[in-house]
């Protein structure tokens, strides 16, 4: 099959503003991944095309971009999931809401700054258990935050959020997912501090329950649900199924 790639290009050293460029590829297999097509454009047609990718297998989260109008990982989308037929058109542009450095590469620093603001690490200064080994947790308590451990920080959710587009100071879905992962961990002791950060005007109340984040997540994390659970934690505290 033939595929026309319509890619949003921008080189700040040369271009006044971003523009669309078309690249046509032949002999594309329906089960090729979009990342492979980007590689073919870069390797066969225009070496200046810039994008991030590392593992290329949906684990590292570096090739998040907007494909046919929706945020996804280029390495996890097959051509046949987008369209079928002899001639397929695919539109690719950078994620919105973060500054474009070049072509499909955006400045992820503001995103990581929000990530760091919710203390995305385990906090527990209590003495270790007597056997000096791990802090045990019941399966039910572990299950509470299982879903939010899956995040790979690709920013697909945060840059699909109209609240984040409007206001880059909004901490964003990804940071709230990370906060949820620790707030609902029965072994962690810093839930109150994280909730304090998220209680600020640019915290969790900027979520408008739009669900774009949930549909954008390549890891199928129930993002909007996690945000609602953090809001609930703010209203009535965190409860765990089993006492520890």
């Amino acid at each position: 099959m033939r595929v026309t790639m319509r890619i949003r290009r921008f080189n700040p050293e040369k271009d006044q503003k971003p523009y669309w460029a078309d690249y046509t590829l032949d002999q594309v297999e329906p089960n090729d991944r979009v990342l492979e097509l980007l590689h073919r454009v870069k390797w066969e047609q225009d070496g200046t095309l810039s994008f991030r990718r590392s593992c290329a297998h949906g684990v590292c989260g570096s090739d998040g971009m907007r494909i046919n109008g929706v945020n996804r990982l280029a390495c996890k989308v097959l051509v046949n999931a987008l369209d079928s037929g002899d001639h397929v058109k695919i539109q690719i542009e950078p994620m919105l809401g973060l500054h474009v450095i070049k072509d499909l590469i955006v400045d992820m620093e503001p995103f990581f700054e929000h990530y760091r603001s919710v203390m995305p690490y385990f906090v527990n200064d209590d003495p270790l258990p007597e056997d000096g080994r791990e802090r045990l947790q019941s399966p039910a308590n572990r299950a509470q935050f299982d879903d939010t451990t899956k995040c790979i920080l690709c920013a697909c959710c945060t840059t699909s959020c109209p609240s984040f587009w409007a206001n880059g100071d909004y901490v964003g879905p990804a940071a709230i997912v990370q906060a949820h992962r620790f707030i609902y961990d029965s072994r962690d002791n810093a839930a109150a501090e994280r909730l304090k950060v998220l209680r600020e005007p640019d915290g969790v109340w900027r979520c408008r329950t739009i669900f774009n984040c949930t549909s954008a997540c390549p890891r199928e994390i129930e993002v909007t649900r996690a945000i609602a659970e953090v809001k609930a934690a703010m209203r009535r505290g965190v409860k765990h199924p089993d006492p520890e």
């Binding site: 929706v70 109209p162 739009i210």
Partner: peptide
């Protein structure tokens, strides 16, 4: 962060599902 105009136009351009249109 996107400008106000971009935010509005992109809200209409982003292919969010029914949740996005419900919010609009």
């Amino acid at each position: 962060m996107a400008t106000l105009v971009t935010t509005v136009t992109e809200t209409l351009r982003y292919r969010g599902k029914i949740g996005q249109w419900s919010w609009v």
